[in-house]
Simulated assay, not measured.
Amino acid sequence: MNSVERMFDPAPEADDRLSNASTWESGGALWASGEQKTLTCCRVVDETHDVKSFEFRVGDGSPVRFEPGQFMTVSAQVQGQSVERCYTISSPPTRPYLLSITVKRVPGGTMSNWLHDNMKPGSELRAYGPSGSFTPTAAPAAKSLYLSAGSGVTPLMSMTRASIDLGLDRDIVFVHSARTPADIVFRKELQRLTELSPRLRTFFVCEGVGDEGGWSGPTGRLSLRLLSEWVPDYIEREVFTCGPAGYMNAARGLLREGGHNPARYHQESFDISAGVAPEPAAPANDAPQATFSVKLSRSSRTFTVNAADTVLSAARKAGVAIPSSCSQGICGTCKTKVLEGTVDMNHNGGIREREVQKGFRLLCCSRPTSDLVLEL
């Protein structure tokens, strides 16, 4: 028995604390996804030549609860314009006093370049509360396969860190794709974590070797042959995938080709490199549309909305500021409780059924069917 095995007392297979929502509901204060707070930067870490991690504490120093894999929407004034972007929280919820986002500098990227050039210890950043459903609680599993590319590693890193912080030796295979070995985000930490958790296995595949002539790993792209060699039992695993849209499509395709059950495949819904998307179009209907009133309970502001428009688009037309980001029912930033009235909501994964049961709706993809009173 080696030293790691002697120090590590593996949790029983039935221990599902990572995938149990109650684990993450018990620690820290609830920070609603529609509530904006100020973050103070504590530390900036160079992960690669073009990727930095920005670590923050909440302005009042309070702990924050969230689920591993969730994201925040950050807001900043860039060249006189308000810019909002979604970034996954790369730190685990087991460390609730410190939140980190890990950002790749994207050529021409407004927010990523601003963060890289301006964010330093002591700097402040506005952000909305954690949101998103790409978390282990979506699918409890005894064995997991994490597939990531580029900065898509961040939600899976949060899950991995959380699992180890909980003292769990979970059966996780983490396969990451990068351009070159120098572009592997969290490379050293992942290697260290495999020493702490004997059943965590990591594999890297790079498109090229770059300046690392001694690279002994595979080059090219992830293939079914490689996956079968590294993870012979991939069919039995719950798969979580995050990365550029093309990568996720390719990963889903090769798994399908290999006979993996699509019901056990989960991927991040928003493209982390994209900006704000257009709102979903209203259903085609030439009939006259009814008009309804919307009242905000906290501010007592009111505006009207046509039945063919989303509540968010009507609010914008009326000059009413409502937190939002993706505008297509994915990110959850505009999640709001409907106190009175009804809406027709067609979302894309940005809200959970238990939240719907509590009366919450995503305003970017909700069209009114009556007068409304919103908890805003």
Rank of each mutant, 00 (worst) to 15 (best):
R225P: 00
D211T: 14
Y234V: 10
F204I: 13
G214C: 08
G208D: 13
G210D: 07
T219V: 12
L224V: 05
S228I: 00
C206V: 08
G213I: 00
R192L: 12
C206N: 11
P198V: 05
P232W: 11
F204G: 03
R192Q: 12
L227A: 03
G213T: 12
W215E: 02
D211C: 01
E229H: 12
P198L: 10
E229F: 04
S223W: 08
G214L: 10
D233G: 10
G220S: 02
L222G: 01
L222P: 01
E195C: 12
W230M: 09
S223V: 03
L226M: 12
P198G: 10
L200F: 08
E195Q: 15
T194H: 02
D211I: 04
T202I: 14
V209Y: 00
C206D: 06
E212M: 07
G220C: 02
P198W: 03
V209H: 07
R201E: 15
I235V: 15
C206F: 07
P218Q: 05
G214N: 14
G220D: 01
T219P: 01
R192W: 12
G208V: 05
L193H: 06
E195Y: 14
S223K: 03
R199I: 01
P198R: 10
F203D: 02
G220K: 00
T194M: 15
G214I: 04
S197K: 10
E195F: 12
S197Q: 12
P198T: 05
L200T: 11
V231K: 05
P218G: 05
L196T: 13
W230P: 13
L224C: 06
T219S: 09
E212Q: 11
V209S: 14
P218L: 08
L200I: 11
E212Y: 07
E195H: 14
G217F: 07
W215Q: 06
L227G: 01
E207D: 14
G210L: 06
F203N: 14
S197P: 04
G210N: 05
C206I: 04
T194A: 12
L227E: 02
S228H: 07
S223C: 08
F203P: 01
P218R: 13
G217V: 08
R201V: 13
F204C: 13
L200E: 13
R192V: 04
L193G: 06
R201F: 04
P232V: 09
T194P: 07
L226H: 10
G217K: 06
L224F: 04
E229I: 00
V205H: 10
L193Q: 12
L196P: 00
T194R: 13
R225C: 03
G208R: 14
F203R: 15
R225G: 08
W230R: 01
C206M: 05
R201N: 14
G217C: 08
E229V: 02
F203M: 11
L196G: 01
R199Q: 15
G213L: 09
G213D: 10
D233N: 14
G214R: 11
G220V: 01
Y234L: 05
P198I: 07
S197I: 02
S216N: 15
L226R: 06
L200Q: 07
P232R: 06
E207G: 04
V231D: 03
G210A: 09
G220W: 00
W215D: 09
E212I: 03
S197W: 03
G210F: 05
